[in-house]
Amino acid sequence: MIFIPIEFMFSAQMMFLFIHVVRNDDTANKNKPFLLLILLSAVQSFLLGLRWGYDVEATSYIVPILATLLPALVYAGVLNVIERDRWPLAQRMVVYYLPTVLVVGLTLFWREAVDIVVVITFLAYAVVILRLLLPGTDALGITPLDGADSTYRAIFFAALSLLSFALIDTILFLSFIWKHVDHVPSVILFANFAALVMLGLAATLASNSKTPPQDTPQPRRLDEEELSGSATIQRIEELMNDDHVYRDANLNLERLARKALIPSRQISQAINRSVGMNVSQYVNGYRIAEACDLLQATRRSVTDIMFDVGFQTKSNFNREFRRVTGMTPQAWRMKYTPAVEDPTAEPNTGCAAAQGGTT
């Protein structure tokens, strides 16, 4: 009977996932580091299957080297949805590949230190990524506000997976030192399956995060009066109410800042202090408010309305609609449509609070 390690099965699933993402998305909009992350995860799982399924000792030299590339790919992908990577090529090469080069050297001359470097690499990248996420979804400056929440959760899961990898390697390192190796294959099977699942999920979600080119002027430096929170909110409300910028499906925080000629950090702080929510929720509030009007005043399909007000996916639209109104778009239409047909009915206020992003 042919023995097939379960790692091989997972590797095949990751390859199918990679092919699916590549075939079903516009190439220009892909986050390439995250796509490479899926591919590398598949390769790592396959190598682990060779090591623990068929006792191929040579893979034990390759796996740690490739492992150091995982956090670098996660970090590069995160930068693609937070800010454009403006570092010079030489600096990027050092940050991304120095741990890999170090592990290659240690593999040749000091094998015992390899696991320590791998653990430190995973921990360091995880801490840096989590620090980047401290501002919440507003940290995703060049991610469309429509999908900011999903992308934020995906990146958070990716950071957790890096921490889990560090924990796994630490447990295995100590197991070999203390000569408790009987349970090592089981630990590797369970831990890598859980960690790679998180990486695959994060990579799939974040690979769809678009970063459209900026086509508006750079924000100028503002004086103290203009930097006041009230002035910032007034300017953003003008863009929302007069220019309807929220209808732009590719609108992100950086693009909003360029249109307003106000630094993105100032916009984020002003909205957070004034209405107690992030920029994504604020902008989506305007989208939902117009969607409510269209659902009530027209018989157009929910999908058409969703696209018109600036959403790109039905899942994000339904989630935000429920957040603001407490019900689905279909349920909202059924509840408030009679108000249009009956002149004596009270006017609908079910979505009035959505304007300006408040609930």
Rank of each mutant, 00 (worst) to 15 (best):
P64D: 05
A291R: 08
V245N: 07
D146L: 06
A28Y: 09
L205Y: 11
F156G: 02
I168Q: 14
M93P: 00
T100S: 15
T325H: 01
G285E: 01
G77D: 03
Y282T: 02
F307N: 06
R153K: 13
D115M: 10
L145I: 14
T211A: 13
W332M: 13
N31P: 07
L167D: 09
I262H: 02
R235D: 02
T100W: 10
Q281G: 06
I129S: 10
Y96M: 08
T232M: 03
A148G: 04
S161C: 05
A231F: 02
R287E: 04
P144T: 06
I38L: 15
I82R: 11
S268E: 14
L79S: 08
M9S: 09
I38H: 01
A289R: 11
K30F: 06
N272S: 14
P338N: 01
G136H: 05
A231I: 00
F176Y: 15
M306H: 02
D25H: 15
A331K: 11
V340M: 11
L48V: 04
R287K: 14
L47S: 02
L39M: 15
G136M: 05
A203C: 03
N24H: 15
V22G: 01
C351A: 12
R323M: 03
A297T: 15
S41V: 12
A139F: 14
S301F: 12
G141Q: 14
P135D: 07
W52C: 02
A194N: 06
L189M: 14
S274G: 01
I2S: 13
Q355H: 10
L37Y: 02
G356Q: 00
Q13A: 14
I4G: 13
C292D: 05
Q269A: 12
V101I: 15
L40P: 02
F157K: 00
S274P: 03
I120M: 10
R255F: 00
T68E: 11
D146Q: 09
D26Y: 12
L172D: 10
G276A: 04
P219R: 07
P99M: 09
P144G: 06
T107I: 05
N316H: 01
F18H: 13
P71Q: 12
V279P: 01
D248E: 09
T325G: 00
I19Q: 13
A90V: 09
P213R: 10
W110P: 00
P144E: 05
A289P: 01
Y97Q: 08
M198L: 15
I65P: 07
P33F: 04
V43I: 13
V21A: 11
S315L: 00
H183T: 11
E320P: 00
